[in-house]
Design a protein around this nucleic acid. Structure first.
Lengths: 162, 162
DNA sequence: TTGTGTGCAAAAGCTTTGCATGTTG
DNA sequence: CAACATGCAAAGCTTTTGCACACAA
């Protein structure tokens, strides 16, 4: 996560970026889209589409799953949100603007997600792109293991494998 | 893939391993399970559960989806099969015995999957495991990009994002 | 005003489960 | 013979789609 600006600075900038993106794409600047953006940037860590939907419903915000999924896709396209899959058939998301690029370490027992940075992954991307004649757009590196502490092994939504 | 033994050598050994695993786990050695193992080790590259099921049906083998999924899970547990998700909500599998550890490069246009090896990933695993106090069990590294050639951009089952 | 985004609900796609039957040990 | 895996179909879960309505431009 590694925050580099204040939450307000980030959110102001993020709204500007999303606005510019929507205009450039001739997409409408609807209140729902900005409400979802705001909700996402007020969250910490990772979440799935359903959790985001439920949380907005709980705040009495009238929004549909369709709009949540649609907006998440827009936000991923303009790089304000990152999409992950931690070994489950379930997409997880996290805000990505103003945070350092990082990869993930997932506990197979309790589902806890830690983040880390390693410059070698960038070297691998560059070398393999050259070697295999690919233009690398992005990557996903997940390490799966067991954390030290006596973690809650009964937690739901555990990663299965891979 | 990088084969290191002949197909027959591998398959003989793989049957032995699966047999031992089933005995150790007090699981039955049913013909269905070995038929699925055989089918998998006669395939190349990556496949999903449905493709495996369909292919067995086409060979007039009487097998159910439930058994396919159940057996795949057993095979993953005894490390004879690896499970992947290339950015889709769809598990992909590949045989893993007798093949070098490798990671994947996926074309976002045509879905093509290439494999590569890089020793630095092992270094990252060791270092991050130590640093963050995790016992790393396995990892998943996928590079997403665009391949040089004029690939078929209309292919189904393309990766979405992440 | 007009085209496009939205909400809602139904459908789709992958995977798991329940139950009766068949088979392994 | 008894326990457990199988086949089949139905259910479960996440995500997508269709359609009428509402609203941004």
């Amino acid at each position: 996560m590694v925050e580099t600006k204040t939450t307000n600075e980030v959110f102001t900038e993020v709204k500007r970026i999303f606005t510019a993106f929507l205009e450039q794409q001739n997409q409408r600047k609807t209140p729902e889209r900005f409400a979802i953006l705001e909700e996402i940037y007020h969250r910490t860590d990772h979440f799935d589409a359903e959790a985001l939907y439920i949380h907005m419903k709980n705040q009495s915000y009238r929004v549909s799953r369709a709009t949540v999924y649609n907006t998440l896709e827009l936000l991923v396209h303009c790089d304000l949100v990152k999409r992950h899959q931690f070994g489950k058939n379930l997409a997880q998301y996290e805000k990505s603007f103003g945070f350092k690029q990082h990869d993930h370490l997932i506990c197979l027992d309790c589902g806890k997600v830690l983040e880390f940075c390693d410059p070698r992954i960038q070297q691998i991307k560059t070398m393999m792109g050259d070697l295999l004649h690919f233009k690398i757009a992005h990557h996903s590196l997940n390490l799966y293991g067991h954390c030290d502490s006596a973690c809650d092994k009964n937690r739901k939504n555990l990663p299965t494998s891979a």
